[in-house]
Design a protein around this nucleic acid. Sequence first.
DNA 1: ATGTTCACTGGGCAGTCTGTTCAGTGATAC
DNA 2: GTATCACTGAACAGACTGCCCAGTGAACAT
Lengths: 157, 157
Amino acid sequence: MAIDHLDGRIIVLLAREPRIGVLEMSRRLGVARGTVQARLDRLQSNGVIRGFGPQVDPAALGYPVTAFATLQIRQGQGADVRAHLATVPEVLELLTTTGSGDMLCRLVARSNADLQRVIDRVIGFDGIVRASTAIVMENPVPLRIIPLVEQAAADSA
Amino acid sequence: MAIDHLDGRIIVLLAREPRIGVLEMSRRLGVARGTVQARLDRLQSNGVIRGFGPQVDPAALGYPVTAFATLQIRQGQGADVRAHLATVPEVLELLTTTGSGDMLCRLVARSNADLQRVIDRVIGFDGIVRASTAIVMENPVPLRIIPLVEQAAADSA
DNA sequence: ATGTTCACTGGGCAGTCTGTTCAGTGATAC
DNA sequence: GTATCACTGAACAGACTGCCCAGTGAACAT
């Protein structure tokens, strides 16, 4: 569960140059190939590395508008609302947060006008009491993990 | 910019089995290897596929607590606040949203108690007027892209 | 001190994939 | 009618992967 310095270097290297192979990594890190391979296997079976899926940019797909909707759910309707939102492709992520049945919902849309359609579809469901939406304008820090990995690796040293 | 059905199948296949190679993909999809290769190159140079970085689970790294902080920024301090937050490893993502200088900030922490430390570090900066935090409890829909890809592929058909 | 366990090293092997190139084909656009 | 484009099927050398092995060194328990 805790990662050491070598694990950290492996992850960071992989994050910076994903197409790199195990052999090249072992060369860069100055360790044997078998070591890198064993570490990678361990990191994956630990669940630290979930996978290497493609990172798709919704904007490039034609969905340049991102928004967050805060939903207030009627007591006991949580499960239904989740199932409903899971069927909406524009819902990229759904989280339940502290607060009385609150959910936070990450949305994308083809345009600001299209966002209205998406929101209507999201909230057009019994069980949602109230919704407020904030449109994302800029993304100064895109979803990242490297600094955290480096800190986790340093902590274990 | 628009993706067709084959592009969609490539992305979905890649998302489901990231370790798959171009050759195996071409077999599964029933097209020539060169086609898959050309499509992949195009998707990447288009920016639709940003990369194949490892998906790291913060929880497995020892950061099981996720929270969202809404920050209200003093006029004109936006750039400074961004630079500040970029230096905090526990800040996984930062977005500016509609509203008077508002930012939304995705955080992780080692525990609820540790979250206090993180939040103190986040808001311990001149220029942040107010902050409110919501702790994430569940994640019914983890960050996903497949449904959107499928819809984008279907739309172009 | 002795023995065990574990991770790492460095080597080797067969099998497979990648990057690249090429000519041929069909559909589409001009 | 012709140029353009994407796709096919094939080929090639080079590189990588998965897997195996024996040897070494450190940490740990006996």
